[in-house]
């Protein structure tokens, strides 16, 4: 695998996360962490993609990594976890698939039905749409589930629990 290219992707994913963090007006003390979390999430996703893992599963892994980190970051920086997790997962949104799906719909509208071309476009569009949908569910699930698992108690008291174990 080309590790340099992988690092570069992680680097850019961090900046995409940072842009959204500033758009959502997060507190200044969280900016560095959000860049780092976006970069790590991107690295996990692209590393798994390099091993030819399904893109929805790779996104789920990246988003879960971000979800778990967000719980610890929330404890350390005293902000709710969603402040960290939402900007960080946004670089992984399936923009390209959603775009190709929309493109497919447009082509379908102007192609005569029941021709082989129509069937081909239909299959591609459905494939892209399903991928976009599954990635979205994987992203929001990956972020939400670590938060819900740890919310039996509050984040503030998470440290003592770990110390006891």
């Amino acid at each position: 695998m080309d590790y340099l290219a992988l690092m570069e992707k992680g680097f850019w994913a961090g900046f995409a996360a940072l842009g959204f963090a500033i758009l959502f007006n997060v507190p200044q003390r969280t900016l560095m962490i959000i860049w780092l979390m976006g970069a790590i999430g991107g690295l996990v996703k692209f590393f798994l993609l390099g091993w030819e893992v399904n893109i929805a599963l790779a996104s789920l892994a990246g988003a879960s990594a971000i979800g778990i980190m967000s719980v610890y970051a929330a404890h350390n920086k005293q902000s709710p976890p969603l402040v960290f997790s939402i900007p960080s997962v946004i670089p992984m949104v399936p923009g390209a698939f959603a775009y190709r799906m929309m493109l497919g719909f447009m082509t379908l509208a102007s192609t005569p039905t029941n021709t082989p071309a129509y069937m081909n476009t239909m299959a591609e569009t459905a494939g892209n749409g399903l991928k976009a949908m599954f990635i979205l569910v994987a992203l929001s699930g990956g972020v939400a589930i670590p938060m819900l698992i740890t919310r039996k108690d509050t984040f503030k008291r998470i440290k003592p629990h770990i110390d006891q174990e």
Partner: peptide
């Protein structure tokens, strides 16, 4: 205060080029 407008604009634009690089 929010972040200054120019900073918001330029960092979101940087995120836009980051998306482009990711794809």
């Amino acid at each position: 205060p929010h972040y200054p407008r120019l900073i918001i604009l330029s960092s979101v634009s940087l995120a836009g080029s980051a998306f482009c690089a990711l794809f």
